[in-house]
Simulated assay, not measured.
Amino acid sequence: MSLDLTEILESLELGRISVSKAKKLLSLYAVEKIEDFAKIDTSRKLRRGIPEVVFAEKKEFLDLKKIILKATSKTDSVLVSRINKNHYKKILAFSRKNKLKIHTGKNTTTILFSNKLSSTGGKVGILTAGTSDIGVAEEARLVCESMGCQCICSYDIGIAGIHRLFPVIKKVIREDVDVIIVVAGMEGALASVVSSLVDIPVIGVPSSVGYGYGEKGVAALASMLQSCTLGLSVVNIDNGIGAGAFAANVANRSVRKKSRFNNSKTS
């Protein structure tokens, strides 16, 4: 029996299949095998709200094409992150040839495959200290948008010219964002500064921008982890994907809570 998720649930409700049969079908539905080298988690977005993410950096080009075709045929959103620069243009051409709807970002080789980006009402602010941090921030943006969140982005507002920050802080507060992502390299101080100015959860992303003693993001990571401002959480160096997923989860849960609260007041 080959059923999609909706058909399985409808069949269970109508008594056409047993609970054990439904459980078996759902477990089969959750994983899609690709020959002997990959297993796609096709129900991740239904289960967790986060789409399947394919880490492409070390994958062979032919294998990557097979993964993309299979994943896009089974789920409405797939992120392919860190595509090898030698493969990136080929993947773009391959996507156009196969009429796959793609969303790209500045200074990143991560691609979001999605026919339609829905909206949950969640809002995420994404800030960077410098232009060198934009690629990581754009990865976070693509993840957030794949999860239905609107992103309010502002780049190159680091503490070397701290006066650039204050109009942006006013904007994210006015936009009533649910969470803020801050990407910063060098000493990573921007995350602490932003966290000290708002009553909004802040996710710090240390970027691998820097040289010398604290090179490759080490100083930024240490600085964020030892921040004296409260309300700041920190992910790994260059982990825009993880920051985006966490931020969108926070934003979407906040929207659901607000909706239930408003409904309870009117009932």
Rank of each mutant, 00 (worst) to 15 (best):
H87K: 03
H87Y: 08
H87T: 00
K90A: 06
K90Q: 05
I91Y: 01
I91G: 00
I91D: 00
I91P: 02
L92F: 02
L92P: 02
A93F: 03
F94N: 07
S95Y: 05
R96S: 07
K97T: 05
K97Q: 14
K97Y: 08
K97F: 05
N98A: 03
N98K: 06
K99A: 04
K99S: 05
K99N: 08
K99Y: 02
K99P: 00
L100C: 05
L100K: 10
L100P: 09
K101P: 00
K101F: 05
I102Y: 03
I102S: 02
I102N: 02
I102G: 01
H103N: 08
H103K: 13
H103G: 01
H103S: 11
T104N: 09
T104G: 06
T104L: 15
G105E: 15
G105F: 11
G105R: 06
K106I: 15
T108I: 14
T108E: 14
T108W: 12
T108M: 11
T109W: 01
T109K: 01
T109R: 02
T110P: 11
I111S: 02
I111V: 13
L112E: 07
L112T: 10
L112M: 06
L112H: 13
L112Q: 07
F113M: 09
F113L: 10
N115K: 10
N115A: 09
N115L: 05
N115M: 04
N115S: 15
K116S: 11
K116N: 15
L117V: 15
L117G: 11
S118C: 05
S118H: 15
S119Q: 10
S119K: 15
S119R: 13
S119L: 15
T120C: 11
T120R: 06
G121Y: 07
G121H: 11
G121P: 06
G121R: 10
G122T: 04
G122K: 00
K123Y: 00
K123F: 01
K123W: 00
V124R: 04
V124P: 04
V124F: 08
G125C: 15
I126C: 03
I126P: 00
L127I: 10
L127H: 08
L127A: 14
L127G: 07
T128K: 08
T128Y: 12
A129P: 04
G130E: 11
G130A: 08
G130L: 07
G130S: 12
T131P: 05
T131C: 04
S132L: 05
S132M: 11
D133N: 14
D133P: 14
D133R: 11
I134Q: 13
I134D: 06
I134R: 09
I134S: 14
I134F: 12
I134A: 12
G135A: 10
G135C: 14
